[in-house]
């Protein structure tokens, strides 16, 4: 558990971090909490020569409403999301996800930007980010680039971030009308990661589902939006039968992970059941 030697630089500003990354390129990794990166380094699975720490850049830690969007700085800790009054009021899915993430130490030090950029196939955030139709703002010497969540998660541990880019901000579109949200997960008994994690963001009008965002993590090598679940909901009354029928499509069209804890067959079952539960909770919150 001793990492290979590396240089550590605490960037004082985002501009400095961008320029350090431009200088050190592939030799560098961004440290944004470190709860995935440092264990990987201690195991020597990753041996970056330079760590650029964003931890002291205060300007990257915020939760605010701006231009009709919710904007969350990359270095906002899970705990800050969990305890944000603003989020609890306007986007309770995020605090609900944060509460179920890791343990107290992870939530105190780990950041939403770090987790999303790392894109662990069983991480919690990607499910919520997808369900909320969020945008990810990547920044580099070339300026900002806005990436839709649906095209951000490329494959296992791989995102759409390009060399030189730093994940700067996550933007959540403002809700229209009534929304009902929920995050439920099957916690892996050892790691606490999501064996299956389902985030749901529903909007309804006159008893009919107007829009549905269903993000699922843990099931496949990358988090995904369950399109067939969503289409099974849209335009329909959100009764038990509809929810259950839609949930049956939770794992449609994806490669399903299989590991020591859960075979693909069982994971698919969990995905179905937990999607239904998430839908039921979200639907009940519409009222």
């Amino acid at each position: 558990m001793i990492p290979a030697s590396f240089d550590y630089i605490a960037a004082k500003s985002l501009d400095e971090a961008i320029s350090l990354l431009a200088t050190h390129k592939d030799d560098a990794k961004i440290l944004a909490g470190g709860h995935s990166l440092l264990p990987a380094m201690k195991l020597r699975l990753m041996q970056p020569k330079v760590l650029i720490d964003l931890g002291r850049i205060k300007e990257l830690s915020y939760i605010k409403e701006e231009a009709g969007q919710l904007r969350i700085g990359a270095m906002t800790t899970h705990f800050q999301v969990e305890t944000s009054d603003l989020l609890r009021r306007v986007c309770p899915l995020l605090p609900e996800t944060a509460t179920q993430l890791g343990d107290m130490q992870v939530r105190n030090k780990g950041t939403i930007g770090g987790s999303v950029a790392h894109s662990d196939p069983a991480a919690d955030w990607p499910a919520a980010i997808l369900a909320l139709d969020a945008e990810i703002v990547a920044t580099s010497a070339r300026g900002d680039r806005v990436i839709k969540a649906t095209s951000f998660f490329v494959e296992m541990l791989t995102t759409a971030l390009e060399p030189g880019e730093i994940l700067r901000e996550i933007r959540i579109p403002g809700g229209k009308g009534k929304s009902g949200q929920a995050y439920v997960k099957v916690r892996h008994p050892a790691s606490g990661f999501a064996v299956v994690g389902v985030a749901v963001n529903l909007a309804a009008d006159g008893g009919k589902c107007q829009s549905a965002g269903v993000g699922i993590t843990g099931v496949s090598p990358k988090a995904y939006r369950a399109a067939n679940v969503e289409s099974g909901l849209k335009g329909n009354a959100l009764d038990a039968k509809t929810l259950s029928a839609a949930a049956a499509h939770a794992a449609d069209g994806v490669d399903i992970n299989s590991d020591l804890y859960a075979s693909a067959e069982y994971r698919k079952q969990l995905a179905t059941v937990y999607t239904r539960r998430a839908l039921e909770i979200a639907a009940s919150r519409l009222k």
Partner: peptide, 17 residues
């Protein structure tokens, strides 16, 4: 070795990938 002892949950998906 190391990959076997720490990579259990991702090995199958990695192989498929």
């Amino acid at each position: 070795g190391l990959i076997a002892s720490v990579g259990q949950r991702m090995i199958q998906a990695t192989a498929n990938m």
